[in-house]
Design a protein around this nucleic acid. Structure first.
Lengths: 353, 353
DNA sequence: ATGAAAGCGCTAACAG
DNA sequence: CTGTTAGCGCTTTCAT
């Protein structure tokens, strides 16, 4: 095998390019006694190859340990089978199920999903975008909507299918699967109002979508005549993103110091809500009798907290699945039935509110 | 500009390859009045280009909105500036700081880090590996050590620099930055023993490294004469991975039902520990007087739990930083000063134990 | 400091 | 069903 491998390389060493020393499609072809394009077909369109040829080529692939070079393949076919997801931090539990569903759906369709982090506040976003486009993915999935005008232009110019997720906008770049954060705030306001709460406060992380949930709540509260019960604006505590148990505790402490009469808190994440619940307990304020607490995310600990957290649930897997379908359909030249989908949300009522 | 762009393409349309319709290095070169290779040098070795040429080419790049095609670049240079990280789930909070440090260190050196998920239990690991190798990254960072023999062979054959992390083994594939999970178990056993605890139980997620921490504890406990105080083996509750607050609660409940006399629990993650603490509270068992609880990870909520969690802390950022340096050094042909680093761990003593 | 030629490893297009 | 040929967009090597 030593003599065979690399033999094809010897006769084209004219102006000395050094190659990688690794197995190429030509080596496999030589060993199987076929043309390189046949090996390519075995890999990419096995149905178009005769059974016996298929067998021989596959054996040659195994014997040589050949791993295709997708750089070369992508260059030749402008089809990379790569999809890039742009995420704030890879470790946000809220998005986890979405990334899982994305990964799985893409994997089943033969695509590889890679993740790039922008950091909180979208610091490196534009650079990351160029780095992604430079690899010519077949699709791009964004967390939230793209606000940077430069980013939008780059994406449109690149001509790559794009799905924005976990948010809603009348002007998506391309496709979108998400829901309205403002409406969540409204729904929470109405819920708390219906439970007789009139002195509502907010603990929110300093993050765009969280702020918009808080804004929806503020607006709806005003409409329901709640805001004026306390002050012109709802009492609010803003914590650094991402929200932590500690900032939830601090938030509730702070709000109680400023407004001892509050009877409900809407937290921008379940972690903040857990912190609020723990702080209330440490102060021997009963939840929900003293303060009602509502979270967001319905994370895996929400149901097991003490008391269990009332929270807003979003169908993360559905977002991932639908977003992947959008990209796959477009990448394969099909038309996308629903390029903009609002998956909505639901309020999960538990003991904390 | 319309006429200029794409002009170079017209005269080579012989056998009809269709191209991408996007701006290529040739278009930029034409506009700047230089050879393509000069544009390439502006991008990759600006020091070797005259100032005035540099200016003209950069202007042409801006005007055309050129984004390099790294598939082509990587194919030609076998240097992709891409590093792949293999992670169980992208949303594990334990690893977050490591991934952040990795991303930053690589970005500063001009590399892009992408993440691939294996799923818990390393289900898709071998496939993922081939997908990664197919893109010819300049380096691969693994979470934990590679156990699959096929995977090891593939990686070695690929000749790509590899760093295994967050674990220790006498036989790394290539480079390694981690620590001993067994030793953590030993340290926890000794700590609890020193605090007078003699009836120690374990709540662990069904995950390899967590089990090895539990095993270290078991062995050390036996040596300290603890195991026999209760039974031949330490009472253990095994939860599905990843550990949740709910399984922590259930775990403690279960253990107490079977062994009412236990006076300490070692949990394989802080989330499990938080669950244990909450369950204890719900049962009005004082922590640590009734049961001492020790976690692992020192996550951002550990210090703010009620009571604050005693836990094992690992220097995540250091692992990320060192692992990145290993890859960068190797990718740039330098020798790596320390190809195997044990970063150790520390026990953070707080109120829960 | 800049350019011309060749080719990285693969697949599209066109035969047969 | 299989093969031949050309070329994807870039960078290496060699030359000036």
């Amino acid at each position: 095998m030593d003599r065979t491998l690399g033999a094809s390389r010897a006769n084209k060493r004219r102006r000395g390019r050094r190659g990688t020393g690794k197995v190429r499609i030509t080596d496999v072809a030589l060993l199987a006694g076929v043309a390189p394009i046949t090996v390519s077909r075995v890999l990419n369109a096995p149905d178009s190859v005769a059974a016996e040829t298929l067998r021989r080529v596959r054996e040659a692939i195994d014997r040589t340990g050949y791993v295709p070079n997708m750089l070369a393949g992508g260059l030749a076919s402008r089809y990379t089978r790569l999809v890039a997801a742009v995420v704030p931090t890879i470790a946000s539990p809220v998005f986890q199920e979405t990334w899982e569903a994305l990964t799985d759906t893409f994997a089943d369709a033969g695509y590889h999903l890679t993740f790039g982090q922008t950091g909180y506040g979208g610091a490196r976003e534009d650079e990351l975008l160029d780095a992604i486009i430079a690899r010519r993915p077949d699709g791009i999935v964004l967390t939230g909507i793209m606000r940077s005008p430069l980013g939008r232009r780059r994406l449109i110019a690149a001509g790559i299918p794009v799905v924005e997720t976990w948010d809603l906008t009348p002007t998506p770049i391309d496709m979108l699967v998400g829901f309205s954060h403002e409406n969540i705030g409204v729904a929470v306001a109405e819920y708390l109002h219906s439970k007789g709460r009139r002195r509502i406060a907010v603990i929110t992380a300093a993050d765009d979508r969280a702020r918009r949930r808080a804004k929806g709540l503020t607006v709806a509260a005003a409409r329901l005549g709640i805001a004026t019960a306390l002050a012109p604006e709802l009492p609010m505590f803003v914590a650094a993103a991402p929200g932590t148990l500690g900032s939830g505790r601090k938030g509730l402490g702070d709000l109680l110091a400023r407004h001892p009469s509050i009877d409900a808190v809407f937290c921008s994440s379940d972690m903040l809500a857990l912190g609020a619940v723990i702080e209330a307990e440490a102060r021997e304020i009963p939840v929900p009798e003293g303060v009602a607490v509502v979270g967001y995310g319905n994370l895996n600990f929400a149901a097991d907290a003490f008391p269990p957290l009332t929270t807003v649930s979003v169908d993360g897997p559905a977002i991932g699945h639908l977003a992947a379908r959008c990209i796959i359909d477009r990448a394969q030249g099909r038309s996308v039935p629903e390029p903009v989908v609002d998956v909505g949300f639901s309020l999960v009522e538990r003991a904390s509110a």
